[in-house]
Amino acid sequence: MTATSLTRPASTGGGRGRRPGRSGARSMGGVGRAKRREAIALVVPSLLPVLLLSVAPLLVGVLLAFTDARLVRRPEYEVVGLENFQRLLDNGFFWDSFRIGMVWAVSVTVLQLLAGMGLALLLNADLRLQGLTRVLALIPWAMPPVVVAIMWRMIYSPNAGPLNAALGGLGLPDDINWLADFSTALPAVVVVGVWVGMPQTTVTLLAGLQQIPGELNEAASVDGANAWRRFTAVTLPSLRPIVTSITSLNFIWNFNSFSLVYVLTEGGPGGKTMLPMLFTYLEAFKNRNIGYAAAMGVVLVVVVVLLLSAYLWSQFRAEKER
């Protein structure tokens, strides 16, 4: 959630659905060398911090992965080549955590999409209570992840927690320690992940829905298509590009998530919610093996990029075939 709290956009006011830059570029076409110099001068100030504080660290991070560097008083390290990666292959804890990370990222992303789609359709329909729902739908997005986690800890608590009380009221088992029980911990954090991530998906899908020309749906209605048919034949295909992009971004954000689960469970119980980012963090700042941790980071990034490329490629192919 950390990265995402920094990178998730709040407002979408500027886009207006228009492809940015077109008209400007056209009318200022044929810019001379002077113009180009001016452009570069304008951009340089934002390049400096980026080079210093994100590109350089990224490169150093990759280099670190090939060393046995540790966070100790007298840091002496050697280049060890691929040793970290070889060790990683045999590290069962890491791959367990990797698997948990995939389960987490996939389920949160899919549920976000389904729940967000449902809410977006409701918000797009002609209903009352829209204002309240809109505000409620945005709050999870705005809240600090730490506060979200504290709040859900209280909801899930077996002491004076409302969830167990509600279950008890329905005659169901009411003594579950949701975040500490082996079978419920991961589903419980997934629900919180969905709660946090749903707003953005909803807003994006809603924007997409509002861009679908009303005539399309009307034409389908005249042809006798029912609501479900209209949804699959008109709405879904129109939303396809948005769904693809929001799904890929959500997947990466969720896979890179840290803060929410760190505060909810710290990876427990018994490592059942040990997301790969938590695992890597602990390797670096608890076990102090920063070289090894960097190797984990590299592996995670490579795998995510590969998965994403495969997904985007398949979407691209499907698009072409249609």
């Binding site: 659905g17 807003v203 992009s245």
Partner: peptide
């Protein structure tokens, strides 16, 4: 603070900048 800001900006959340980002 976050909730106040977001409620303030609620009305502006109509366009799909994010989707635009990927589409464009």
């Amino acid at each position: 603070p976050s909730i106040v800001f977001f409620s303030f900006m609620q009305k502006k959340l109509t366009g799909g900048l994010l989707s635009g980002a990927v589409k464009g």
